[in-house]
Design a protein around this nucleic acid. Sequence first.
DNA 1: GAATGTGAACACATTCACAGCT
DNA 2: AGCTGTGAATGTGTTCACATTC
Lengths: 207, 207
Amino acid sequence: MYKEKIPKTTIYRLAIYLRTLEKISREHRTFISSQEMGTLCGIDSAQVRKDLSYFGQFGEVGRGYSVKNLMDNLKKILKLYRRRWKVALAGVGHLGTALLSYRGFREAGFEISCAFDPDPKKIGKAIQNAKIYPPHRIEEIVSKEKIKIGIIAVPGDFAQDVAERMVSAGVRALLNFAPVRLNLPSGITVKNVDLSTELISLPFYLK
Amino acid sequence: MYKEKIPKTTIYRLAIYLRTLEKISREHRTFISSQEMGTLCGIDSAQVRKDLSYFGQFGEVGRGYSVKNLMDNLKKILKLYRRRWKVALAGVGHLGTALLSYRGFREAGFEISCAFDPDPKKIGKAIQNAKIYPPHRIEEIVSKEKIKIGIIAVPGDFAQDVAERMVSAGVRALLNFAPVRLNLPSGITVKNVDLSTELISLPFYLK
DNA sequence: GAATGTGAACACATTCACAGCT
DNA sequence: AGCTGTGAATGTGTTCACATTC
């Protein structure tokens, strides 16, 4: 797709730049230098320029980057330009509920449009825009709604099963909060967000 | 502290190995090879050996690693051996509540022992073992309880302020869920867990 | 003068491959 | 025979430094 190989870390940083640009834009600024972007994001300015250079030449020499122009370009690169993504959520426990009401997702162009949980008290209800279904309907609903992105927020023991069913229904990318390694066909993108592992590694750095 | 420089990624993986060992141990297995550990964790077996070799020689040639022995050693390295860490939580919204009831933390040896939130309906209550206080008492409680680890689960606008107050009260390491860069003195360890950024980067990999 | 874009140099992390031990 | 521990080789990502453009 692109000439050079793109570091995974670059993609992650593009999302950070986009958020910073949105903030800058609300302050009615029209230009920003790689220098300033770097300071705001806690990233080296050469890294900012290098990241952007993988995808094209968006800057104006001597002036920096047009805020509006760069925002549009980043949205295009990240496949967020004038489109919203529907997302399926598995697990409406504490974490799942937190994710359902998380503003950041909506603002970034994502909408959790359906959720799955075995609890009869939850099934049939709706939180935000998401109607809650029993897990056995994952295949049916996900494929009907043509959902490509899933979030796993179920206990570890159920994660593999739920993930497989989402994938068989057409999901191609997963955000996984369960503390297990998902074993899925290559071609499926999995991002693990492992809350305890992150916390566990903190004491090592103390003192 | 250690002769060689330890990759940050290694520390993160040690926490994964520890979790796998706990599972293995529940199955009453006594030895595990780097090979099998690798398969279970989705990590190359040479990587497993290299990670462990930074800290000593824990294996038995021809046999692999004693599950119990390696668990103890990893706990010592990660500063989790026969001790529990008290943690302060800022923000008892949906996410904060999810974190308070998250089993993984307890099991790993962490205990959220106090929480802070401005909502008068929440102040004075307790969730799990955490009593909820108003934010202006952060300095008082955190220093009295000698807490070294904090979790930030407040909206972005308040994160910097809350983080500074925790740090001034003695906190040395932070797990930050707010989508902002925290500006703190060097020596303070910050791990950012940015939920929307993780989700935002998924569509890039689709198709 | 100010800031981009980018090869080249560097730093960091992973994987190979095998000597050496049990 | 099986598996660790590790130097060497490779791969990946970051930073430098500067020619170039406005």
